[in-house]
Computed example of a mutant assay.
Amino acid sequence: MTGPLITAVELLERQSDVTILDVRYRMGGPSGPEEYAAGHVPGARYVDLDTDLADPPGEGGRHPLPDSARFEVAMRGCGVRADRPVVVYDDWSGLAAGRAWWLLRFHGHDEVRLLDGGWSAWVQAGGAVETGATVAARHDDLDGDFEARPGQMPVVEAGDVLEVPVLIDARAPERFRGEVEPLDPVAGHIPGAVNIPTSTNLAADGRFRSPEQLRALYAAAGVPTDDGAVVAAYCGSGVTAVHDVIALELLGVRAALYPGSWSDWITDSRRPTGRT
């Protein structure tokens, strides 16, 4: 497998050769464990975004990066091994599963793919459906041998964000403009950022647009798409911005992530905010 994505057809062919993680999560949506129990890719282990893929809210925003040692234990409990590819999926346009993709890459696992189109693509491709809460079969630190080596993907922190040549805000346009803010106490955006909402990365079928379409989309927003570009992305809490990171990776651009994102930025009232 090459690139950050895998199709449902490819997963059907490789299913026995990969570790599959179900990252069902949706802001304000149905419970992930309940959705997992109702139906999931056979053999997939459930991963909880709030407990496995983030530390508690506080310093660092609403979804701070998880402690690396705790993340390692969670991934081992899901059977993640250094010598075995990992496929992650969700039913939320890849917005939650992207967090697992990025964290595994950040911690040193090179063979991680996001299922393009997610759960619906799997079902449409005729993939088998397993039911039941087999999440209970997890055994911390017994199934996998994954060793977390943080620092393998670029990040940018609050003190350096304003120096990034090209900064992307991946939130919805109305949140970027500061017209509404449903989650954080301050509305607006980081000055100098350009808005490329994650939804624009996808075609009507819920899969990522072609590289040619993505290149045109990002170029129109003023984002260089050559491999020498210095680009970073942020969102509300550092989760959904990974979607833009993945889109840029499809173009050969290794974008940095501001993990704390807007929810971290606004914790210091001295930091400037913009509205358009």
Rank of each mutant, 00 (worst) to 15 (best):
Ala221Arg: 15
Gly228Pro: 03
Ala256Arg: 04
Pro173His: 09
Asp55Glu: 10
Ser31Ile: 02
Leu115Asp: 12
Leu5Ser: 04
Pro259Met: 06
Gly77Ile: 07
Ala229Phe: 09
Pro30Val: 15
Leu167Trp: 04
Met27Ala: 14
Gly192Ile: 11
Pro56Asn: 00
Thr19Gly: 13
Val87Gln: 04
Arg270Asp: 15
Gly159Ile: 08
Leu21Ile: 07
Phe176Trp: 13
Glu72Arg: 03
Ala255Ile: 01
Leu95His: 03
Ala247Glu: 10
Ala38Val: 11
Thr51Gln: 08
Glu157Met: 06
Tyr258Val: 12
Gln124Glu: 15
Glu130Arg: 01
Trp262His: 04
His107Asp: 13
Asp83Arg: 06
Val223Asp: 01
Ala232Ser: 08
Gln124Met: 15
Arg149Val: 14
Asn195Gly: 00
Asp145Tyr: 00
Thr276Gln: 14
Arg177Ala: 15
Pro42Asp: 03
Met153Ile: 12
Asp141Pro: 05
Gly39Glu: 09
Gly61Tyr: 07
Glu10Cys: 11
Gly58Cys: 05
Asp110Thr: 12
Thr131Met: 08
Leu250Lys: 04
Gly192Cys: 08
Glu147Leu: 03
Asp83Trp: 04
Thr7Gly: 05
Thr19Tyr: 11
Thr200Ile: 14
Ala219Trp: 12
Pro56Met: 00
His189Glu: 04
Ala97Met: 08
Val23Asp: 05
Gly3Trp: 10
Gly118Ile: 05
Ile20Leu: 09
Val80His: 08
Ala82Asp: 15
Gly58Ile: 02
Gly274Gln: 05
Pro66Thr: 06
Ile20Asn: 05
Ser237Ile: 06
Pro85Gly: 01
Gln152Thr: 14
Val245Lys: 12
Val123Gln: 15
Arg14His: 12
Trp122Thr: 01
Gly3Arg: 06
Gly159Ser: 09
Val155Ser: 04
Arg62Asn: 09
Pro173Cys: 12
Trp265Thr: 04
Gly252Gln: 03
Gly159Ala: 07
Gly3Gln: 07
Asp83Val: 06
Cys78Leu: 07
Pro173Gln: 11
Asp227Val: 03
Ser263Ile: 02
Val23Thr: 11
Gly144Phe: 13
Gly94Ile: 09
